[in-house]
């Protein structure tokens, strides 16, 4: 186990492994997403309070879960790269940022699309949406920092420190926003939450969530390969790929 971990921490071995894994992960993700889509749009019964609009939850909740999950992966990969100087971990952190930002944006946009008919407004300063917005700022900051530092090694290390600071701050921000919104929000506003959920509603949600996770895995592998090709462009194994 540990031995294979060492083996695939080497960029060239990882590159080959990831080429073999990607089609399987992408295929499984596509199947799960299609199955989840059928369940979400067709088989799940409409919610008795929210009607058909509740179906938005099937894309909103997995995106919101992933937005946080990807940030944790990013920070963990950053630390791994910083402490053990693993190039593959640096690539993982850097490749995760745009996907995480996309998931965060998606969670915000679908939340807004759900809010319009439910709250009567495109945006309500709901605790969860607000935290999601701040998370998007954190992602944008990370990406901006990566863009500003030209030396890749230094960018990865600086990004790791930033991600750790962000990770410590996420729960603080989340709870302070929650505190703030309970002070300012009228009690009539329905919370944007999965309703007391029936099993026929839950299964599509879990399938979608798993589909999103595999989608991220497949996508991050492709992005990591690009990162490694660019970072290692002058090393022997990358030259061999060309010939």
């Amino acid at each position: 186990m540990l031995e294979s971990l060492y083996k695939y921490a080497a960029p060239q071995n990882f590159y080959q492994l990831s080429r073999r894994l990607t089609p399987w992960l992408a295929g499984a993700a596509a199947l799960l997403l299609l199955a989840g889509l059928a369940g979400a749009l067709w088989f799940a019964p409409p919610d008795y309070q929210q009607g058909e609009s509740f179906r938005i939850i099937y894309v909103h909740v997995p995106s919101a879960w992933m937005s946080l999950f990807v940030y944790v992966v990013l920070a963990a990969a950053g630390i791994t790269g910083l402490v053990w100087k693993v190039k593959v971990a640096d690539a993982l952190a850097r490749a995760s940022a745009p996907i995480g930002a996309a998931f965060t944006f998606l969670a915000l946009a679908t939340g807004s699309l759900w809010g319009k008919p439910m709250w009567g407004a495109w945006w309500v300063w709901d605790a969860r949406l607000t935290s999601e917005l701040i998370l998007l700022f954190l992602y944008v900051g990370y990406i901006a920092l990566q863009g500003a530092i030209e030396d890749r090694r230094m960018a990865a290390r600086a990004g790791a420190v930033l991600a750790v600071i962000g990770l410590i701050n996420i729960p603080i921000i989340h709870y302070s926003v929650e505190w703030w919104s309970t002070l300012h929000q009228g009690p009539t506003v329905t919370r944007f939450d999965a309703p007391a959920i029936h099993i026929s509603m839950l299964i599509p949600l879990l399938i979608m969530a798993l589909g999103f996770k595999l989608y991220y895995a497949a996508n991050v592998l492709v992005r990591m390969r690009c990162e490694l090709l660019e970072a290692e462009r002058n090393s022997a194994w990358v030259r061999q790929l060309g010939s």
Binding site: A148, I149, N169
Partner: peptide
């Protein structure tokens, strides 16, 4: 310290720091 000496560091610093000041 992270952004010291970077081009356009001022705006970048504001972008990174302001979300953390919210609590």
């Amino acid at each position: 310290a992270l952004t010291v000496g970077l081009r356009g560091g001022g705006v970048l610093l504001a972008l990174l720091i302001l979300p953390l000041y919210i609590p």
